[in-house]
Simulated scan of single mutants.
Amino acid sequence: MVEPASLRSRTPAFLCDQAIVLVLGVVPTVAAGVPLADIVDPGTTRRQVFVLLMGIAFVYHFVLEWQTGTTVGKRLLGLGVRRDDGTAIGVGESFVRNALRLIDGLGYWGVAVAIILVRGDGKRLGDVFGRTLVVSVA
């Protein structure tokens, strides 16, 4: 049986990956001439940047997890994504688990945390439907 990584170890990995996504989205946006104030103040620009960041986050997680089984944040914390049986994930599993970030991420990831805590098996919605699990690989 494959043991899930704890929420305690997953959280700093998640925050690291979120920081990378922010840099990948916000730095080029500001470099293109969009004022930082427009990005953080409520309004159309902030909504557009949010959609951009969601797209970047999907591609970042989808490609890295599919190709390497991990992300930068997960790698730094000794974590990886595996199929339920412990084998490497493929394109399908990575796509499903990351497409469901749109739901898992609601409420500042409150949905994902609630599902992980209620289920007790370390799985957020994306893991349930993708048949994946975040595990310690260190």
Rank of each mutant, 00 (worst) to 15 (best):
G43F: 04
W109T: 12
A13E: 04
D84Q: 04
V118R: 02
W66D: 03
G90L: 08
V137L: 13
L125Y: 07
V63Y: 12
I20H: 12
G105C: 11
G55A: 05
D41K: 10
A138G: 14
L125C: 04
V27D: 10
V134K: 03
V21M: 09
E65Y: 00
V72I: 14
G107N: 14
P4M: 02
A31L: 15
V81P: 02
L24A: 13
E65L: 02
R8T: 12
L15H: 05
L24H: 14
L36S: 03
A31G: 02
G55L: 04
K74H: 07
D121Y: 04
R83M: 08
F58L: 14
R97W: 07
G92N: 11
V59K: 10
F62G: 02
V30M: 09
A31C: 08
L133M: 13
F129K: 10
L53G: 09
T87R: 10
V118G: 00
A19S: 15
V72Y: 09
L117Y: 00
G107K: 14
T132F: 08
A31S: 10
E65D: 02
G86V: 05
V34F: 03
L133H: 09
R8I: 12
A31Q: 11
A88N: 09
L76K: 01
T87V: 01
A112Y: 00
T71A: 05
Q18E: 14
G86E: 01
G73K: 03
Y60K: 05
P28W: 05
F50I: 10
V128D: 06
V91C: 11
G110F: 06
D85I: 08
V113E: 04
L76V: 10
G122M: 02
I115K: 01
W66N: 05
I89C: 08
V113K: 06
V137E: 14
R75V: 00
P35L: 04
L133I: 13
S9N: 12
Q18K: 14
V23K: 14
C16R: 14
Y60W: 07
T71N: 05
A32T: 00
V40C: 02
A31V: 11
Q48F: 05
L53A: 13
G86H: 04
L24S: 12
L102P: 08
I56Q: 12
I89D: 00
V34P: 01
P12W: 13
G43V: 01
V40D: 01
